[in-house]
Design a protein around this nucleic acid. Sequence first.
RNA 1: GCGCCUGUAGCUCAGUUGGAUAGAGCAACGGACUUCUAAUCCGUAGGUCGAAGGUUCGAAUCCUUCCAGGCGCACCA
Length: 555
Amino acid sequence: MKEYIEKILGEALKRTAETEGLEVPGDIEIIVEKPKDEKLGDFSSNLAMMLARPAKKNPHELAALLAGHIAVGEGGVESASVAGPGFINITMSRGFYRDRLRQVAAQGESHGHAPARKEQKVLLEFVSANPTGPLHVGHGRGAAVGDCLGRLLKAAGYDVRTEYYVNDVGNQMNILGRSTLLRYRELLGRSAGEFPADHYQGDYITDIARDIQNKHGEEFIDRPEAEALPFFRKTAADWVLEGIKKDLREFRVDFDNWFSERTLYDDGSVNRALDWLRERGFVYDQDGAVWLKSSAFHDDKDRVVVKQSGEQTYFCSDIAYHQNKVERGFTRLIDLFGADHHGYVPRMKAVMEALGYDESVFHAILVQFVTLKRGGEKVQMSTRSGQFITLSEVVAEVGVDVARYFFLMRSSDTHLDFDLELAKQETPENPVYYIQYAHARICNIFITAEQQGVTWPAKGEVDLSLLVEDEEFTLIKKILQFPEVVEKSAQVLEVHRVPHYLHELVAVFHGYYKRHRVVTEDRERTLARLFLLDGLRITIRNGLSILGISAPEKM
RNA sequence: GCGCCUGUAGCUCAGUUGGAUAGAGCAACGGACUUCUAAUCCGUAGGUCGAAGGUUCGAAUCCUUCCAGGCGCACCA
């Protein structure tokens, strides 16, 4: 749409330059936007104001010149005018919009989807929570945003894969195993005093221990810890990871790949990455540890990759992991982090540079915290004490559609208030239903039409000239905006634009519905209006599908 | 102390990367169902865009300083 207008303006600019001897800077960018007020026109451009300075001309006069060279009457342009300080406003004809609406109907599911772009292979990594406990609400936001971003990027034509990095190595896995072992002993009456504060407190640990007890009885009760631990560690980790996978499935989040950190150690990738960096002098020994010279690449300081103990740090394997991503052919790496990990971003960028890649290959998205509320009251949570609301609890309480919508409706970089009471309500306050309701209403109109014996001719035979109401064209214009919203959201990696757009879109519809009846005696007009609603229904469906939210036919 | 994020209507938030008179939802108030779903619609009211400077034709948006809140600043992950 906008590209089309840009072309029209570009041609006008060329003609103006030729006939008026106007000097145009080579790098001038034609920006098309929507006027604040719909009455001013369908599109507007500040082109004249941008040109005013280099051309040393009055922006208003320049705008008039340019507007005069727009081919009115051709290509769907109905009028071009000048307003304000020098805006050029363009109005398109109704015929133009009717044709565009036909295109939407023809596109169906692909309306809003851009053709595949070949230039980039994107790897989107998100959640990647340690498999030491169930996912909580904060992970839920990351999961919803990441999953939606994946769907969005795919719709925008990018080649995207999603991945969950499983931190199945390291000390926290030992603590998980030990926590389970201690609970197991408690269950069998062998409590060894106070449960350690730095171990995992959650009830799920006891559940795992009970599971082991049921299957293995007292088999491990007298074994020394060193001997029993590997079994407990593995059993607990598998149990927790399976739970995470199940929770995510239920939340409609499917990863293309689950990447195990352990494999990077097993196949020597970690050591290989270290050697590679050492050869190039980006790694050095000091105080018995091995450091990455990250300060040479915009990080505040150097970072330890191998501890004095000889153990590699989490950061160390992450270097290998990101190298691995690039080696798999990905040209753009997007990582979603919880806001508490933002300090990690500069060092990851440093890693990319040290590895010889452009820093811009790596892109971090920070997802801010979620404050869970219940009727305005803050729900206190603390991971350490094991008192936290899990994602699956929230989903069980409010449903997948609502939970996803609440996570997606706000910009990722603002704190999110998630009020469970509000989310549960099935009335006005809940924006999810507002959108879904519109879809259900449209479906119901089609059922009514069918019941009244309305049959569809070939789509090309529906006479769209019977669409004459202003609101019908407002609706069409809004429908046609959808591809632009998808493209822009994908470009800036901001998913919240999609729910906002959908809300605006269906608001126009709800108003139209109230004032204009679709199914009437006038058979031809009924068909024209149904045609319009079909385009709208397609748009709502495609939009909700990007959000991973269902489009119910009945409510 | 240093860094990142945030500050816009009573509340929760948008604001098309510098554009035209700053918008929506909720809450408040007043209206609208004998016709396709009232989970809806229409109207009223609500603002020193945290503060002060600066940049220019033009600033909620960019720059500087300050204030407030959140989060970081490990040989944890």
